[in-house]
Design a protein around this nucleic acid. Structure first.
Lengths: 148, 148
DNA sequence: CAGATCTCAGCTATACTGAAATGC
DNA sequence: CGCATTTCAGTATAGCTGAGATCT
């Protein structure tokens, strides 16, 4: 094995879509492992965040806020309810719906997850200055908004 | 449903790791669908790129260059060989290894995939100027290099 | 012996699809 | 009727793990 095998094809290194997927691949286990220390996954954090910021909502509405599929919302909400972090109740005004709400324990849990997630940002963006992190966030936000 | 349900929790929108995964989620079907028009997937492009730029290599070496798992390399190489885009031959110097090489048809196919992938970059980065695209690429590259 | 390579079976999480039952 | 909601079963992919056989 003569030369460095960690080298990547130049074709890939020059493609933003490749870099994005590589950073995403780096970020995923960082986030996933941290959340796991609190017995949670990304879906749980996203749902709790949506519940905390937008208030009680149906599962369908929740899925739109948290950018999750209806199918995955159902399963993840059941997890949260099972752990006492959220409550599921029938909607008296529309009996097709469940109204999901965050519990006090859920709010406390979200705060804990917030700290874990903040730590991941620092770890992921270590090589960037504060100004560069802001720049990156801004550029990515515009891409996300455009494809919204 | 009073207010916009496309709104995302502020907690998420402020997290680079979330934005990265969102952009990655947008980019994936763009890339995947385009490559599918040529009967290929991301793994195929990455392998062909590594073969074209680093020359014939063992599957293990190929996996390191293309950032792929040994297991996935085996399956994807079999795909390429089956389509005549790569060749698999035993290494006379080390009989544990297969030497994988790109064929002329593989080189031609790679050129075609290159055009498709280039189109995806434009589509993904539509809202950004040329300078901003360069900036984004640079920031992402530094993150990737740091976590290499 | 340790260590590398290849193959295969299987696993997890994300993301998604289809269908059915229920209700507006 | 059309449409929305929930639930369940199932699919696909990327990425990864473990085990075993082979070879250096």
């Amino acid at each position: 094995m003569p030369t460095g095998e960690d080298a990547r094809p130049a074709r890939l290194m020059a493609k933003p879509s490749w870099l994005i997927s590589e950073v995403s691949r780096v970020a995923y286990p960082l986030l996933s492992d941290r959340l796991a220390t609190a017995g949670s996954r990304g879906y749980h954090y996203r749902l709790l965040a949506a519940l905390a910021e937008f208030g009680p909502a149906s599962q369908a509405s929740l899925g739109r806020h948290a950018a999750m599929d209806r199918s995955d919302v159902a399963a993840a909400v059941s997890d949260l309810v099972g752990r006492g972090l959220a409550a599921r109740a029938p909607d008296p005004a529309d009996r097709r719906r469940n109204v999901i709400s965050i519990t006090p324990a859920g709010t406390a849990h979200l705060r804990r997850l917030d700290e874990l997630v903040a730590g991941v940002q620092d770890e992921l963006l270590t090589p960037l200055s504060a100004a560069e992190r802001q720049q990156l966030t801004s550029l990515l936000s515009r891409i996300v908004q455009h494809h919204g």
